[in-house]
C-alpha cells in the first residue's frame, strides 16, 4: 500500500481519484485543490507518489512538480491537454489522460519506483 497525494482542482474529479486510489488498495492524501495547499502538501506531507493536475483553477502546477522532483518523489501529470502542454523539463513525466483508466493509474504507480 502506498500513500498517494492527489492534486486536482475539480471536486468531482478529485472524488473520482480518491475512489480509484482507494480501490487500488492505496491510501489517498489530500486532495489538494489549489496551488498553495498543493505546494504545502508536496513540501510537508508524507506520501510515496503523486497525481498532479497541471491546471489548478487557472494556475499551472509546475512549482509543485519542481518540489516533487527535488524531493525525489515520483509523480504523474493529469491533464485534459495531453503531452502538448508540457515543456522539456517535464518531458519524462508520464501524463495521465482524462477520463481515467484505473488500470493505467495502477500501472503508473507500480512502474514509478521499486520502493512503492
Amino acid at each position: 500500500m502506498a500513500r498517494i497525494l492527489i492534486v486536482e482542482d475539480e471536486v468531482l474529479i478529485a472524488m473520482l481519484l480518491e475512489d480509484i486510489v482507494t480501490d487500488l488498495g492505496h491510501h489517498p492524501v489530500g486532495p489538494a485543490m489549489r496551488l498553495q495547499p498543493a505546494l504545502a502538501a508536496a513540501e510537508h506531507e508524507d506520501f510515496d507518489f503523486a497525481i498532479l493536475d497541471i491546471n489548478l483553477a487557472g494556475q499551472q502546477s509546475f512549482p509543485v512538480a519542481d518540489c516533487l522532483l527535488r524531493r525525489g518523489i515520483p509523480f504523474i501529470f493529469a491533464s485534459g491537454y495531453g503531452q502538448a502542454g508540457l515543456n522539456e523539463d517535464y518531458a519524462r513525466i508520464p501524463v495521465l489522460q482524462k477520463p481515467y483508466d484505473p488500470g493505467q493509474i495502477a500501472r503508473m504507480i507500480e512502474g514509478s519506483a521499486p520502493s512503492v
Binding site: 475539480e10 468531482l12 474529479i13 472524488m15 475512489d19 491533464s79 485534459g80 482524462k98 477520463p99
Partner: peptide, 17 residues
Amino acid sequence: NHRVKNSLAAVQSIVTQ
C-alpha cells in the same frame, strides 16, 4: 478538448460514485 475530457471525467466520477 480539455473541457470535453474534463467533462467526461466528471461524468465518470458521477457514474462510478
